[in-house]
Design a protein around this nucleic acid. Structure first.
Lengths: 130, 130
DNA sequence: CCATCTATATGCAGCCTGCACCTAGATGAT
DNA sequence: ATCATCTAGGTGCAGGCTGCATATAGATGG
């Protein structure tokens, strides 16, 4: 049966933080080497339980991290199952994670500016009895 | 001269909230009728000053809001300049704004889960003297 | 008449995503 | 041995959003 594991959720309107999986993977890799299939499980425990990631996205992000020099990979045999492509974060990858955190903090500020605008607007709206 | 006004910024890595302009436009329209060119200015005062939106995006979002029944439009003459396509939010558009706010609140929770994971991880990382 | 401002819009390439699908080794049951 | 299933990694394609370039055109001032 095709696609029997961990697909993206119903994706109500496509509203999310673009490329948010990338910093999550960077953070997980900052904790030590890992490989795609394992990272997929760790992401779920990460807070994505309701809205799990598609495996193809994970594999593509990992490859792009390597292409950009933020991670290295090697093939490794596990205790069981097929061989795994194990990724490790590079020093540039560490710095990239820092950049991501700064960016997400900025995103957070923008979000809260929106909420404050929204609450402000709704208060005025109600006090005008409109 | 081509494209001489209000272009997207250098867009460091494409990290942002997807379709975030949409709720901002919804909120502005919730305050009353307006048109593309004016909304573009209001967005800048909204918190986008550093990272202004591209006008083509604004016009396309406004059209899509109308296509989806969240807004209506009419042509109107202004005190000066060419005619304007003036948009007004529909009741469905009001509800759509509410949905967006809920979604952004969820996004905010996800973001903070990330920050807390990050801080947690970094504390352990340092206390291990690694 | 011409440059500039206001205003709306389209075409295109690029990026990211989600879905469908493929390959293949390992494992356990029959 | 064979077969289903799990683990593991991957590709192809379509669709959505964005940014940039560009087109069009009315209004305005010199």
């Amino acid at each position: 049966m095709p696609g029997r594991r961990r697909r993206g959720a119903q994706n109500r309107c496509g509203r999310r933080i673009t490329r948010f999986l990338e910093p999550c993977l960077l953070l997980l890799l900052h904790g030590g080497e890992s490989y795609g299939y394992e990272l997929l499980d760790n992401l779920e425990r990460f807070g994505f339980s309701e809205n799990p990631a598609d495996s193809s996205t994970i594999y593509r992000i990992l490859r792009s991290l390597e292409d950009k020099g933020f991670a290295t990979s090697r093939w490794a045999e596990g205790d069981s199952g097929p061989a795994r492509r194990v990724y490790a974060l590079s020093p540039a990858g560490d710095r990239y994670l820092q950049m991501w955190v700064s960016d997400l903090e900025e995103t957070d500020r923008i979000l809260h500016r929106f909420f404050s605008k929204y609450q402000n607007h709704m208060e005025l709206h109600h006090s005008n009895g409109k």
